[in-house]
Design a protein around this nucleic acid. Structure first.
Lengths: 131, 131
DNA sequence: CTTGACCCTCCAGCGACTGGAAGCCCCATA
DNA sequence: TATGGGGCTTCCAGTCGCTGGAGGGTCAAG
């Protein structure tokens, strides 16, 4: 399978697939002409990576998850630990963003948004703690 | 005012302040010895930047907001437009993360997390669309 | 034989810093 | 006057996960 086909099946751009090879996540064979030749197993790995990435796992997490995936004797606890840690980070990120959103939406609501220069958004940024 | 003092007042690390000078957000004077000499106005700008950044505005947004802040004749509509756009992006980011969180927390919940290799997290990543 | 779609490598850049090296400068203390 | 410690300077490189582009080889169809 050439990179294009793999790209279509996995939804990952060719550039990304090449990058994943660069950093050692997949190791496709090569045809005589130098083209990458992906086996089924390679493609499944890439699909796995794609899904793990959509769930926001870092590349290093992905590398570990992939290793666990390949290891038929792994303990599910190991996987769960990674996922839990990641979940906690996502939750932290969400609440940070929610704080931003709350402050911002108050400011946007209170701003007339007309031709006059008076603006609570700038006023807040200029003087108060924007929390 | 030296960079250290400004750093203390604004909460921004010296490195960041130097970086902001590099990209033209502030233009401190220089003492004879080469040290940066910040005026009050510079420090206020930096404080403004710090607050705008905590609200998640990009550097380019900050540059624009700063210009509007300095322009006493600006229309509040211009500021509001930037903030609204940013707010929309934050909301998009939040809902993306919430989707991740929902999927992940289901998976984490369903995973025994013991010594056995059976793991719904890996099962999902390996086969299904992780949505 | 040419066209156009593929594929290859290598280098650079994104955003917003951050770390570290190498080297001044300034002040206090011995 | 020497020394030590902190603060300041510049410059370069690295972070993360790609992405764009240049410059070129390969392949199948018409």
């Amino acid at each position: 399978m050439n990179i294009g086909e793999v790209s279509q099946h996995t939804g990952l751009p060719p550039k990304t697939i090449r990058y994943y090879e660069d950093i050692g996540l997949v190791k496709p064979l090569r045809d005589a002409n130098g083209y990458r030749a992906f086996r089924e197993s390679e493609m499944h790995k890439l699909a796995f990576l794609g899904r793990a990435r959509t769930l926001g796992f870092s590349i290093e997490d992905c590398r570990n998850l992939l290793a666990l995936w390949e290891d038929k004797n792994r303990a599910s606890a190991d996987v769960r630990a990674i996922a839990k840690e990641h979940l906690a980070q996502i939750e932290a990120k969400i609440s940070g963003l929610q704080e931003m959103r709350d402050t911002l939406s108050t400011l946007v609501r209170d701003c007339a948004g007309d031709d006059r220069p008076d603006c609570p958004i700038l006023k807040t940024l200029g003087t108060a703690a924007a929390t």
